[in-house]
Simulated assay, not measured.
Amino acid sequence: MDRRRRGRKAALPLVAVLLGWLANGPALACKLAILGDSLTAGFGLVREEAFPARLEQALRARGITCAVLDAGVSGDTSAGGAARIDWVLADRPTHLLVELGGNDALRALPPAALEANLDRIVRTAKEHGVQVMLAGMLAPPNLGSDYGKAFEAVYLELARRHHVPLYPFFLDGVVLQRDLMQPDGIHPNGRGVDVIVARIVPMIESFLQGK
């Protein structure tokens, strides 16, 4: 075989790759799935106002191209998230942000059950080679200080045990701020989502960059 024929054969795979790129666009190396409840799903908001969409926009503004997958289900508990983790991982995310626990607290579920469910989620994701970050939640004060401390400690312990980053409180800066919450006092409005994104995005940026 002469050099010209060898050169043409070697070029064929590259041409195929380029044609595929032109047809489908570049494949994103970064895919962040958010396993969450109504705070992720954007209860009471249009899709463009919900946390996943606003986070993806904020990341792009920082020069980070990462598909953000909305795996939020309104009313979901940590048990529901644990039951759905295999389905979420079927989309082959590279990273997973776990935003669960609010509905566990509203139902006063035992912190031990929360820990077991979140532990299963983190372990399963890591077994699939997915990087994990936790977003913590606080229990309502009417459940008492003992319950509140035990609930908060779950996230701290899981972050320590699995060596994963923890954003301590997902609703930081928004909860109890009437102008940032919907009338139910539980879910953020569009402005509230923007505050959440602005506060959490630096940590997510570091998480995606492996820092």
Rank of each mutant, 00 (worst) to 15 (best):
G210Y: 15
G63D: 06
P26I: 10
W87V: 14
D86L: 14
V197D: 11
P13N: 02
G101A: 00
H163N: 10
R160F: 05
D91R: 10
L100V: 13
A116V: 03
R54T: 08
G36F: 08
L114K: 02
H128L: 09
G7I: 05
L32W: 12
R3S: 15
V193P: 02
S145K: 10
K211Q: 14
L35W: 05
R47C: 08
D119W: 06
G44W: 08
L171A: 03
F170L: 09
A150D: 10
G129M: 13
G136N: 12
V193A: 04
G72Y: 04
L22D: 03
S78K: 06
N103I: 08
G72K: 06
I204D: 15
G148H: 14
G7W: 00
A10K: 13
A58T: 14
A135H: 02
K31P: 01
R120I: 14
G75P: 07
L143S: 00
R54V: 13
A153R: 11
L143C: 01
V201H: 01
V197G: 11
F43L: 06
R161W: 09
A53S: 12
D119Q: 14
F170Q: 01
A198C: 05
E115W: 02
C66K: 04
L59D: 13
G173Q: 02
T65M: 00
R62A: 09
G75T: 13
M137D: 01
L176G: 12
L114C: 00
H163C: 03
A112D: 13
V132W: 02
P111C: 08
G144Y: 12
I64N: 07
I85K: 07
R92G: 05
V122N: 09
H128G: 11
A125R: 15
L156N: 00
G129Y: 13
N117I: 02
D76Q: 06
H162I: 09
G190C: 02
V122E: 10
T124F: 15
W21M: 11
Q177M: 06
G136W: 12
S38D: 13
R54S: 03
G173E: 03
R123G: 13
A108M: 06
S206L: 04
L156V: 01
K31D: 02
L22C: 03
L14A: 15
G192I: 00
E48T: 07
L89Q: 08
L22V: 05
D104M: 04
A125L: 15
G81T: 09
L39Y: 01
L180R: 07
F151K: 04
A29H: 07
M133Q: 10
A16M: 04
L39A: 00
M137G: 01
D76M: 06
P140E: 04
A135L: 07
I34K: 12
L12V: 15
K31H: 03
A83C: 07
A10G: 09
D184F: 08
I121R: 06
V15T: 09
R160W: 05
V154A: 01
R5Y: 10
R3C: 15
T40V: 10
L158I: 09
G144C: 05
F43K: 06
A139Y: 01
A41D: 04
W87I: 14
K211P: 05
L100E: 04
H163R: 15
